[in-house]
């Protein structure tokens, strides 16, 4: 199992966000599906230790994530947040910044192509791209770390239909070519059907179901 959550509880501002969540996420294409406020994004942040649970355990490849160096874990388990948050500079600057975390020399053109952008984007000011382009630049930046797992927090929530299709296509292509696992957070069950093989359904801080998408989310 890639990730296991066992009795995970987490509060925020006095409100319980996750309440004894138990869930499994296998290798491949998984997703966390549920309505807004169900705790999906919080689970994602626990998977690469941007937060730690107050109770319970999160395991990655069988080991408690708290036993791992958080910086190494975050390079191995990359996270792309819901809203683009690129650093100042060009797209290439962002990719090189990420690669520098692991002392890697990135192939900027190839990473852009994997993320569905052509190489002309490399020298463009990251702040002047559309939201959809920025999101794909975020994918390219995350891939610069050569992660084994990519955590994607509602990557298309700010996009229109056409841009969403482009990003989904880029993600599928990226996953197939690199052979990495992905954990997608989405509130859109149709997207879960299109993008994942395994689903964990969350509601009000509880994991209410999990299993193959074909069984849990029949069309």
């Amino acid at each position: 199992m890639l990730f296991e959550l066992d009795g995970v509880t987490l509060s925020r501002g006095g409100k319980v966000v996750l309440d004894g969540v138990g869930a499994n996420l296998p290798e491949g294409a998984s997703c966390l599906a549920g309505p807004s406020g169900s705790g999906k994004s919080t689970v994602l942040r626990l998977l690469n230790r941007l937060a730690d649970p107050e109770a319970g355990v999160v395991r990655y490849q069988g080991a408690d994530v708290r036993d791992r160096d958080p910086l190494e874990l975050r390079c191995e388990v990359g996270l792309v947040p819901q809203l683009p948050a690129l650093v100042e500079g060009t797209v290439a600057d962002n990719i090189r910044f990420a690669a520098s975390m692991r002392d890697l020399k990135p192939e900027v053109g190839r990473l852009l192509e994997l993320a569905g952008l052509d190489s002309s984007y490399a020298e463009r000011d990251a702040a002047k791209l559309s939201v959809g382009e920025q999101q794909r630049a975020m994918f390219a930046r995350a891939l610069a770390l050569e992660p084994k797992v990519l955590l994607l927090d509602e990557p298309t929530s700010a996009l229109d239909g056409a841009a969403r299709d482009t990003v989904e296509s880029a993600l599928k292509d990226m996953r197939e070519r690199l052979g990495i696992s992905t954990v997608l957070v989405t509130h859109d069950l149709d997207q879960a059907r299109r993008m994942a093989d395994w689903v964990v359904r969350l509601e009000a801080g509880h994991a209410v179901a999990e299993g193959p998408v074909a069984e849990e989310l029949p069309a």
Partner: peptide, 20 residues
């Protein structure tokens, strides 16, 4: 906070994420 956390998510230290 979003920018800082996005940088931390890349494996940056808190010093690197807070530098700007």
């Amino acid at each position: 906070a979003r920018q800082i956390e996005a940088t931390l998510a890349l494996g940056a230290t808190s010093t690197e994420a807070a530098a700007p």
